[in-house]
Simulated scan of single mutants.
Amino acid sequence: MHNVKRNPQTPEALAEKNQREQSKIIEFLTLTEDVLSRKKKQEWSNDAFELTQRLLQINPEFYTVWNYRRNILLNGIFPQSTPEQINDLLSNELSMTTTALKANPKVYWIWNHRRWCLENVPDGPERNGVPSMEWRQANWDKELFVVERMLDADARNFLAWNYRRYVLANMPTRRPETSELAYTSRKIGANFSNFSAWHQRSKTLVGLWESGQLDPIQSRDDEFELVSNALYTDPDDQSAWIYHRWLIGSGENKAQLEREIQLIFELLQEQPDSKWCMESLVHYKRLLLQNHSPDSQTLKQECVELLSRLMDLDPVRYFRYQDLRRDLDQ
């Protein structure tokens, strides 16, 4: 805390602290050497398995040790186990990595190990001579719950969003895509600046349009209304602007393009120094020029004026704006 007097540590206390840190380093190096030696000798024992867990608890980014741990399971433990025991082992692995993710939510190798676990869950017990999907479905359902809790803790964790897409795409019983659209609505409603949620929404909508579950024309208009609320709420946040550009696409719909240009122009009147408003107006007016009004001198002049303002407002991108203005003069 500020303005709180700190008492200097005594030489004895500093020496003791240094000794503890040195001991931890020596312990880690010794453990690493032991594990890598066993890996080199292709030892697939339970002892080696336990040692990998100790090492990964210290350093969860040690991807070589994650690989070794999987090889121990495949070559040493699974061959001696029943399908039910393998399911229990993999459930334990998922529990172990859940704990690891709470402390290290953005370590890719933990998420990667969870994928491997899910992909190796055996079929459930047979019913009338046919293996059931009971174990697989239970693990995948639980996985979706876990990733939702991770996104509750950090709604912008892009690794968790990527993993969510993986889970939804590979569940034995697929969830309707409309439920994912509702999920992204909740996440965006909680925070308009959640870029990952907007991105997930775009992926979901494409699937719904391609499958014929949503009318692309009507739903796109609904999306424009949603994103417009976000733009007016926080015109300086880029997440909604990027999504807006995705909705516009290549600007083939002239009426839609002109409508959105007018909306952004009105927002610029309220926020005269909004860089994103000006950049978007230039981008969309240039689409109008390319697709619908190639000879419009008025549009060109409006773009030149906006770019001149941007050169003053955003000098870091001065030369980019200058190049755009030069293209309009040609």
Score class of each variant (00 low, 15 high):
Ser95Lys: 09
Tyr166Ala: 01
Ser196Tyr: 06
Lys41Val: 12
Ser196Arg: 06
Leu208Ser: 07
Leu214His: 03
Ala240His: 08
Asn157Cys: 05
Gln297Asp: 11
Pro216Val: 11
Glu266Phe: 06
Leu36Ile: 13
Arg175Val: 14
Ile77Glu: 01
Ala230Asn: 08
Arg326Lys: 09
Glu50Phe: 07
Phe224Glu: 07
Ala169Met: 09
Trp276Lys: 05
Val4Ser: 09
Glu252Phe: 13
Asn229His: 14
Trp198Gly: 02
Ser293Cys: 14
Ser91Thr: 15
Ala103Ile: 00
Arg136Tyr: 07
Lys24Trp: 03
Ser91Arg: 10
Arg69Asn: 06
Leu214Lys: 04
Thr233Ala: 14
Glu148Phe: 10
Ser37Met: 09
Ala169Ser: 14
Trp116Ala: 06
Asn59Asp: 13
Asp88Phe: 08
Gln269Pro: 03
Leu299Ala: 00
Pro122Gln: 04
Asn157Leu: 09
Phe49Asn: 06
Phe192Glu: 08
Ala240Ile: 08
Gln213Ile: 11
Ser132Asn: 05
Ala15Val: 07
Ala48Trp: 00
Thr99Arg: 01
Ser81Gly: 08
Gln19Val: 00
Val227Trp: 00
Lys300Tyr: 01
Val130Ile: 15
Lys102Gly: 02
Pro11Val: 02
Pro122Glu: 04
Gly124Glu: 10
Pro105His: 06
Thr204Met: 00
Ala197Arg: 02
Asp34Lys: 14
Asp221Ala: 04
Ser211His: 05
Gly212Cys: 07
Glu266Ser: 06
Phe319Ile: 12
Ala103Thr: 02
Asn112His: 11
Gln322Gly: 02
Glu33Ser: 15
Gly207Ala: 08
Gln301Pro: 00
Val35Gly: 08
Gly76Trp: 00
Asn71His: 10
Gly249Gln: 12
Pro272Asp: 01
Tyr108Ala: 02
Lys275Asn: 07
Val206Met: 09
Leu144Lys: 09
Leu226Gln: 07
Ser23Pro: 03
Phe145His: 14
Gln213Ala: 13
Asp323Leu: 12
Leu205Tyr: 01
Leu31Ser: 12
Leu29Phe: 06
Phe62Gly: 10
Leu205Lys: 04
Glu119Met: 15
Gln238Val: 07
Ile261Met: 00
Ala240Pro: 10
Asp34Glu: 15
Glu126Gln: 08
Lys203Met: 11
Trp140Phe: 15
Arg156Asp: 02
Val206His: 07
Phe158Met: 12
Leu313Trp: 00
Ser193Phe: 06
Glu266Ile: 01
Gln9Leu: 15
Pro8Gln: 13
Ser219Cys: 10
Lys17Ser: 08
Met96Asp: 11
Asn46Gln: 14
Lys5Arg: 14
Leu287Trp: 05
Ser193His: 10
Leu231Val: 09
Lys39Ala: 11
Glu61Met: 08
Ala240Tyr: 01
Ala153Ser: 10
Phe265Ile: 01
Phe78Thr: 07
Arg164Gln: 04
Glu119Tyr: 08
Pro105Asp: 02
Leu181Asp: 10
Arg54Ile: 10
Arg201Tyr: 00
Asp237Tyr: 00
Pro79Lys: 06
Gly189Phe: 03
Gln42Met: 08
Asp312Arg: 03
Leu55Phe: 02
Arg6Val: 12
Leu214Met: 12
Met1Asn: 09
Ser95Cys: 06
Gln213Val: 13
Glu50Asn: 12
Gly251Trp: 02
Thr233Gly: 07
Asp273Met: 13
Ala48Pro: 01
Lys275Met: 09
Leu267Val: 06
Pro176Leu: 07
Trp209Val: 12
Arg201His: 00
Leu257Val: 05
Ile58Thr: 13
Gln213Leu: 14
Gln322Asp: 05
Val167Tyr: 04
Lys24Met: 09
Ala230Asp: 04
Gln262His: 10
